[in-house]
């Protein structure tokens, strides 16, 4: 798993490029490009969460907060101050990094349940702030009129154009994340995951690496939040609630959190489930998510990317 082959990435990139062309031709799935925009946005978050949880072994049930901070910084600065959206995106990541350091520095000293609860509490507090600071965030009604993105006069004003923008971000983040995993930082993270005392004894600066990866995951979530706000032109707090944080965990648990492909597969499946395939269940889709998460935890500890390994195991017997 240490080496991630380049060929699958190339094939994946080609598939991503071709997808809208194919979807456009088939009426039944021509709106899938729109859904794929959201898949891409959630992929950005889960890639960061995957390296945080799967590789560094640090649980976070509060990443909806960073997603929300990115979205709200973009929304507030563009709508209330008329600042350039791209600059807002950068400012959003800066704010998210600062918050991640503030929250991460004390909480990453915690382990297991304590860390889970700290991030969970943090996520809910941020959610309450989105709801209550009405003069800034618009409160529960949210904010509308968030401008779209454009670059040198080229406006990303259709689902297809935005699709390519978002997925360029995803591919870049994917390659960047692979590089982190294959670098000394990645080895240090795996060492921390395997055994913190041992890693510490080998001279790995544990808290430094934990903070780095926490901030990295927060930055990706924040970018995703900005992209989300500029795509929908409207945000409200309910998008960034506790359940979204849990949904992110479901995505990487389903795909397999020890593998970056798992993040992409999980985000894809869960996003399509919630935007398309679970309409029949309406609000009872939460039961489906609970069932998926429980079954995966009990039967597929390595997620869907672990399935080929399990199947191979059957034949070897």
């Amino acid at each position: 798993m240490l080496r991630i082959a380049k060929l699958p990435i190339a094939i994946f990139a080609v598939l991503i490029i071709l997808f809208p062309w194919v979807a456009r031709e088939i009426p039944a799935i021509d709106h899938y490009t729109d859904i794929m925009v959201f898949v891409g946005i959630y992929c950005l978050i889960t890639l960061g969460l995957c390296i945080l949880m799967g590789y560094a072994g640090q649980i976070s049930i509060g990443h909806a907060a960073f997603f929300g901070i990115g979205a709200y910084v973009s929304a507030i600065l563009t709508v209330r101050f008329g600042i350039n959206p791209w600059a807002c995106m950068l400012i959003g990541t800066a704010v998210s990094s600062a918050v991640a350091v503030l929250v991460g520095a004390p909480s990453l000293k915690l382990k297991g349940h304590y860390l889970a609860m700290a991030t969970l509490a943090f996520g809910i507090v941020i959610f309450i702030i989105f709801n209550e600071e009405i003069e800034w965030t618009g409160g529960p009604d949210g904010m509308s009129g968030i401008p779209g993105l454009s670059l040198f006069g080229f406006a990303f004003d259709s689902a297809e154009k935005y699709y390519y923008l978002v997925w360029s971000f995803v591919i870049l983040a994917f390659i960047f994340t692979i590089n982190i995993i294959q670098s000394g930082t990645g080895r240090a993270l795996r060492a921390i995951h395997a055994s913190e005392p041992a890693a510490g004894a080998m001279g790995v600066n544990i808290s430094k690496y934990k903070i780095i990866v926490f901030v990295y995951s927060a930055v990706l979530a924040s970018l995703a939040g900005s992209l989300y706000a500029h795509y929908l032109n409207f945000i409200n707090p309910s998008t960034f609630d506790l359940f979204f944080s849990i949904k992110l965990v479901i995505m990487i648990a389903l795909g397999g959190m020890h593998n970056l492909w798992g993040a992409i597969i999980g985000s894809g499946i869960i996003t399509f489930l919630s935007y398309e395939w679970l309409h029949y269940f309406e609000e009872f889709e939460v039961i489906v998510y609970g069932a998926i998460l429980l079954l995966v935890t009990v039967f597929l500890p390595n997620g869907l990317v672990g399935v080929p390994g399990i199947v191979k195991g059957w034949f070897r017997r």
Partner: peptide
């Protein structure tokens, strides 16, 4: 592991919540 148990009890929590809504 701590991580899987946390995730399992979270799963239970949303399952029970969903069932109660049902």
């Amino acid at each position: 592991s701590v991580l899987t148990l946390i995730i399992a009890t979270i799963a239970l929590s949303i399952l029970i919540k969903g069932a109660a809504m049902f």
